[in-house]
Design a protein around this nucleic acid. Structure first.
Length: 591
RNA sequence: GGGGGCGUAGCGAAGCUGGUUAUCGCGCCGGCCUGUCAAGCCGGAGAUCGCGGGUUCAAUCCCCGUCGCUCCCGCCA
């Protein structure tokens, strides 16, 4: 019995039609005389009825149907009596009166119920992912993922971009994240790496003249997972020639505008807000600020300076800073709640968090005695009023920013200021090009070595690497970094200078990136690009906090796929073919 | 590498400053039931309380170790 309609299709207008439906038994309700089955497929759910006057054989058959049996039903569409309509169901005006049922396959007792969202533990869901994917929530998110990538392809193709595939077996480049390695059988002792991104290849495609490129590209990074990070993930990789940052921004904004309209029926602003890295850190304590709420961080240096509070003056003397954050209406916070806020600050290495409550006539509690002299000046500088809680951190600039940024995020969350239905994009620009590696005592590329320094720093780059801003940018959405990109270096002389600053010898550069540098000696065009993370983006717009919810077959937090049990031990024969011998730690099980 | 949380029937949870037969909901099995849509009612089966060791007259509960999962810090050019 091949289906003539899907389980989401039938409406009042189909009354009287004879149909065949195929699907899974979602619910089965037997009332003795009358029998209801909710039949489910990708498209929806339709109520099947076996009436009291149906043939005895059919009624007995219905009795035997269990959860998730895959069945075919022949029947006639009929409108439900008015009082029996279900407005919560798309097909709730009708039902199908069954005349024949065929069991296509049976189903064992389920390890967990197929509900809208499963409440089973994640590992169990992943072990039975094929069942978990039947849930309404997973079905909806996988469909959203399809629609999203479809809209991306639609927009970029229309803008003249070519989708070009790049290899997934490539040369290992030790910079950046750890590579996943793939041994070569034919070349004993040699390894391919899986790409961390198509970075070098897309730049080479620019040299080849494909001046607008994109790819929905799988990337691999052998680093520990996080809620928003998976060791295997997908990015929308984009690169363009003869462009400036403005062109990359325009395409990205246009693309997401199109995608949000198509997938969420939502209008985005034509251009996204821009914040410099320094401003983002100073005001929001993060280079990926959540702009759905304000809660700005304010400098407290001036008040700290003239106070007699040693923890603050000490931080200033050692070159640090003091910053404050107003928690609106939180003067009633208990010691316990304040300690929880402090814990958020401590995660990011703050040694402590000072606080005081704003009362009508002065500060109360915590460190108030040091600052009551400046009550009016402080409340006006911080825009604080009675009933607020002021929290402060004194430390190095970076620790202070990060710590208060964490407190800000916690407050935004706890006070319900972060509306999950709002999507606040912003560009973070003017990133430093280099960062100093304390342990190694050298400068390193903050992003990667192929990003262009901004023109005004070209003369002073070697003299003061720390001050150099790159033509680098991130796209941030609701507190997550969702894309990162830059204008690349196409001038071999500038590239050589960058290598020198990060302590990369010409031999080393030649060994690792020789093919790229060589390509760049054959008329490379100026170019730049960006790479939005598809999974993370989908996670945010589907209001999830785990990236696993938008990936059909994700790995768990330790890189295992409980369904197919990868990674796994392999045959000695396979290893021998690959010229590999194992040197395992004692504790490792090898089955 | 480090820190927090969790592990009790097929699933989700409760219990535990140590004490008879380990509780509840869902699912499963049997019965009843003519309009439900998380159907309802009655009955039943199902748990070496993650694993190992220790303390104790007595351990699901306390202690030590270990394994697994989960979130976070580090890491992620």
């Amino acid at each position: 019995m091949k289906r003539t309609a899907t389980c989401g299709a039938l409406r009042k207008e189909d009354t009287g039609t004879s149909v065949i439906l195929n699907g899974w038994v979602h619910r089965n309700r037997n009332h003795g005389g009358i029998h209801f089955i909710n039949l489910r497929d990708r498209y929806g759910t339709t109520q099947i009825v076996i009436d009291q006057d149906a043939e005895e054989a059919l009624r007995q058959q219905a009795e035997l149907l269990k959860f998730e049996y895959c069945i075919a039903v022949r029947g006639v569409v009929r409108e439900r009596p008015d009082t029996m309509k279900n407005p919560a169901m798309a097909t709730g005006d009708i039902e199908v009166a069954a005349s024949e049922i065929e069991v296509l396959s049976t189903c064992k007792t389920l390890p967990f119920m197929i509900d809208e969202e499963s409440d089973a533990k994640e590992d169990l869901r992943l072990a039975y992912r094929y069942l978990d994917l039947r849930s309404e929530g997973m079905q909806r998110r996988i469909r959203l993922r399809h629609e999203f990538t479809f809209a991306v392809r639609e927009y970029l193709s229309r803008e003249g971009f070519y989708e070009i595939e790049t290899p997934t077996l490539i040369k290992s480049t030790p910079e950046g994240a750890r590579d996943f390695l793939v041994p070569s059988r034919v070349q004993p002792g040699k390894f391919y790496a899986l790409p961390q991104s198509p970075q070098l290849f897309k730049q080479i495609l620019m040299v080849s003249g494909f001046d607008k490129y994109f790819q929905i590209a799988r990337c691999y990074r052998d680093e520990d997972a996080r809620g928003d990070r998976q060791l295997e993930f997908t990015q929308i990789d984009i690169e363009m020639s003869f462009v400036s940052r403005e062109d990359v921004f325009r395409v990205t904004e246009g693309m997401f505008g199109h995608v949000f309209e198509k997938t969420l029926a939502m209008d985005l602003p034509a251009a996204f807000r821009r914040i410099t890295y320094a401003d983002a850190m100073n005001t929001y304590g993060s280079d990926k600020p959540d702009l759905r709420f304000d809660l700005p961080i304010v400098s407290f240096d001036a008040f700290a300076q003239k106070s007699s509070f040693n923890a603050f003056t000490g931080a200033l003397e050692s070159g640090g800073c003091v910053k404050a954050l107003v928690a609106p209406g939180c003067a009633g916070y208990s010691r316990k709640l304040i300690t929880e806020l402090e814990a958020a600050a401590r995660i990011y290495k703050a040694k402590g968090m000072a606080w005081m409550k704003v009362a009508a006539e002065g500060f109360e509690g915590g460190v108030s005695k040091f600052f009551n002299d400046s009550f009016d000046d402080i409340t006006s500088a911080l825009n604080a009023s009675e009933g607020d809680l002021i929290v402060m951190v004194a430390d190095s600039w970076l620790i202070t920013c990060n710590a208060l940024g964490a407190v800000r995020n916690k407050l935004g969350h706890d006070l319900g200021l972060a509306d999950p239905k709002r999507f606040e994009f912003c560009w973070i620009i003017d990133f430093p090009l280099f960062e100093y590696q304390e342990e190694e005592g050298r400068w390193a590329a903050a992003h990667h070595m192929f990003s262009m320094p901004q023109a005004r720093y070209l003369d002073t780059m070697e003299a003061d690497p720390g001050s150099v801003k790159g033509d680098l940018y991130d796209l941030v959405l609701n507190g997550y970094e969702v894309a990162s990109g830059s204008i690349r270096i196409h001038d071999p002389e500038i590239q050589k200078r960058i290598f020198r600053i990060v302590g990369f010898s010409e031999e080393e550069a030649e060994e690792r990136f020789g093919f790229l540098l060589n390509a760049f000696s054959y008329g490379p065009p100026p170019h730049g690009g960006i790479a939005p993370g598809l999974d993370r983006m989908l996670m945010i717009i589907s209001e999830q906090t785990s990236i696993k919810e938008v990936i059909a077959f994700p790995k768990n937090s330790v890189g295992v796929s409980p369904m197919d049990d990868s990674p796994s031990v392999v045959d000695a024969v396979q290893l021998k073919d690959l010229h590999i011998s194992l040197d395992l730690p004692d504790t490792t099980e090898t089955d």
